[in-house]
Design a protein around this nucleic acid. Structure first.
Lengths: 92, 92
DNA sequence: TCCTCAGTTCTAGAACTATCGAAATGTTGG
DNA sequence: CCAACATTTCGATAGTTCTAGAACTGAGGA
């Protein structure tokens, strides 16, 4: 079996991707860089801000998505290294 | 965005892998072929048969794991095509 | 300072999931 | 046919997750 720590991250990444809204967010970010919170929300069908925040937290906690604060916005991006390792499907 | 049907399968596969016991089962099967129900159960730490059955169903429903009946046993294997597509990490 | 906008946290209900034990189903060997 | 074994289904329960709204924090602009 692989490294235990790595398997723990794999579970987190896969759990994050195993929900339709979050997979959609990850796919959006794989195609367009640096989207911010509001921009992501606008591309989804009616998701409350609190719900979006919750989803983005799971994605960033898993390491699959990075966030970067710039002014009063937070920009999100797929972490390519993590994506390539666990779910290159995202980058296809 | 990719094909919608494909994204639906992606969610299923990732949801299946986003649970520690099921990831472990998938990793076991990626290293040893044709394990049957009982053999898998023995390699896990105390999981009731009914629970194992439930996990295997999710893995097979996603398409990630194939099952083949032989006599009174059911043998399980990773579907390499699906694994390569969505989670090549399993085969690493 | 005050207002607005971006994003988070809290709370809570509804829906879903993991888990087990017991009962059921199906298959093989005697 | 019967006993034994492999696997599934059922029913219940504890815990988790999704979701939203309301309240909150923090930054920037007027």
């Amino acid at each position: 079996m692989g490294d235990h720590q790595t398997d723990l991250q794999a579970v987190k990444v896969y759990k994050a991707l195993g929900e339709p809204t979050r997979l959609k967010i990850a796919l959006l970010l794989s195609k367009e860089s640096d989207l911010c919170f509001t921009a992501i929300g606008e591309k989804l069908d009616s998701v409350a801000g609190s719900t979006l925040s919750h989803h983005l937290k799971q994605l960033t906690d898993s390491g699959l998505i990075d966030s970067r604060k710039s002014g009063s916005y937070i920009h999100y991006n797929v972490n390519r290294e993590v994506a390539e390792k666990f779910a290159p499907y995202l980058m296809a």
